[in-house]
Structures are given as C-alpha cells and as structure tokens.
C-alpha cells in the first residue's frame, strides 16, 4: 500500500515537472516528425522492395519511428537522474521511509506516460500522411512500446544512480544508442541486409519490436513474430527492472 501511494506521489511530482515545461514534449515529438517529413518521402519508390511487402508504406515505416521514440525517451533519462543526485533530491528521499522501488517506478511511470502522449500525438500527425491505424493491433503495439520504455528508462535511471556523472554515462548511452537503432531495421527493413548483418539484428530486442510493430500496425496479430516480440521483451523488461530495483535498494556512498 505504502509502495503504491509512494509511486503515485513520485509519479505526480515528475508529471507536474513535464506539464510545467510542455516544450520538452514538443521537442521529443520533433524527431519523428522530421523523419516523417524529411526521410519518409525517400521510401516512396521502394514499395515493392523485399521486406516492405506490398502493403501500405507508412504502415511499414511509422512503427519503426515509434520504436525509436520509446527507446530514446527512456534511455536518456539517466541525465535527469544525475541532475537529481547532484542537487541532493534523491538522497533526501532516501532518508525518508519512501519505498525504494517507488523511487524508480514513479520515474519510469512518468516516462511511460510521456512516451504514450508523444506516440499518440505523432500517430495523429501521421494519419494524413497515409498511416492506417488498425485499432487492436495498434493497442497491442503500444504495449510493446511500453515494455521498451520501461526497460530503457529503468536502465537509464539505475545507470545514472550508479555513475552520478554525465561524462561517465555519456559514452555508455551513446554506445548503446547507435548500434541498437541501426540493427533494428527501423529505417530500412533488415531483409535488405547481408546475412551477417541480419543475424546480428536477431540479437537486438528492438528488431523484434519493429518487426512485430509492422505486422500489428497492419492488423496482423496472430503471427509468430508478434509472439516472439512479446516473449523477448517481457523477459528483457523483467530482467532490467529487477536489476534496476536492486540498484535502488543498494547503499549509496
């Protein structure tokens, strides 16, 4: 009970912060919009390329973008965590009987809600560009996106708490960021890749998310790839949250 209440309190605190500066939502919305406007037109001649299928171009392209949004909005929260370690806010909470899990979960929950706001806003923008929403598939895809941001936000927050220094966290986050994005096939389908690159993509959880997202966005739910994505992402989410929780329970020196 105490834990749930604490999660609610700490979620409200972070959410208020977001709503006071809605500009950050706009900035985070800008990345996918720029891709949509400045990159998507390049794809228009590729509709019959293998991997794109013959379906709707936007329904193949937009899910990848949404995975980027979920991934990035979570990963880089480590910087904000470091900020709060530096100003002593985290330490202050830790000297109260606040649930340690709530210290993590309140933040992750805010990031998740933030992401959902951005994703749905963006979807509205993308509809006039030709994105067709299949409701059930789209809802299931949002679940996948939630698992992605829960994973990256837990990871980013825990890493921030361990490292306490922007200069130390930066190379790690950047080192994860680019390979994960490149190997996810979010911009171009991995079917176009040579074999070795395709194999490499198969160890990347984001790849499964993108693949499943493309199917779900087109209303294909009963598919092995969708099942794989849910399975792998559930395992990853559980592992990451468990690890991050342990970090939040540890002593801090």
């Amino acid at each position: 009970m105490k834990t749930l209440r604490d999660i609610g309190l700490l979620f409200r605190r972070k959410m208020k912060e977001t709503l006071r500066n809605p500009i950050y939502i706009v900035i985070n919305l800008l990345t996918p919009v720029l891709y949509l406007v400045l990159f998507a037109p390049l794809l228009s001649k590729l509709t019959n390329t293998p991997g794109f299928g013959t379906g709707n171009l936007m329904n193949n392209f937009i899910p990848g973008l949404l995975v980027i949004v979920a991934f990035l909005n979570g990963l880089f929260v480590g910087y904000n965590m470091i900020d709060e370690v530096r100003t002593g806010v985290i330490e202050r909470f830790r000297v109260t009987p606040t649930s340690r899990f709530a210290l993590l979960a309140g933040r992750v929950l805010r990031d998740t809600v933030n992401m959902l706001i951005i994703v749905n806003f963006f979807t509205l923008i993308a509809i006039p560009f030709g994105f067709q929403v299949h409701l059930l598939g789209y809802l299931l895809f949002q679940l996948i996106l939630c698992m992605i941001i829960i994973t990256t936000s837990s990871f980013g927050n825990a890493l921030g708490l361990i490292l306490k220094d922007e200069e130390r966290i930066s190379p790690i986050l950047q080192g994860i960021n680019l390979p994960v994005l490149l190997l996810s096939g979010m911009l171009l389908p991995m079917e176009l890749a040579p074999k070795w690159l395709n194999y490499l993509a198969h160890i990347n959880p984001a790849y499964y998310a993108v693949e499943a997202g493309r199917l779900l966005a087109s209303g294909i739910i009963m598919n092995a790839k969708v099942g794989e994505a849910f399975l792998f992402l559930t395992i990853l989410t559980v592992l990451t949250v468990t690890w991050a929780t342990r970090v939040f329970y540890r002593d801090i020196s």
Binding site: R5, D6, L9, R13, K16, E17, R20, N21, E84, R86, T87, G88, V89, E91, R92, F93, T96, P97, T98
Partner: peptide, 22 residues
C-alpha cells in the same frame, strides 16, 4: 545534505508537502 535536496522544478511549498506525504 551538503547538496541541499530541494527539488528545482517544483515550488517550495510543493517540496514541503511531498516530503510530508512521503
């Protein structure tokens, strides 16, 4: 603490009330 602990983006009163709630 030496660093203080006040939360920058919130008001002083919000800081205090949240602390009490925790």
């Amino acid at each position: 603490s030496q660093a203080g602990g006040s939360d920058d983006p919130a008001t002083g009163r919000e800081n205090l009330i949240l602390q009490g709630q925790l």
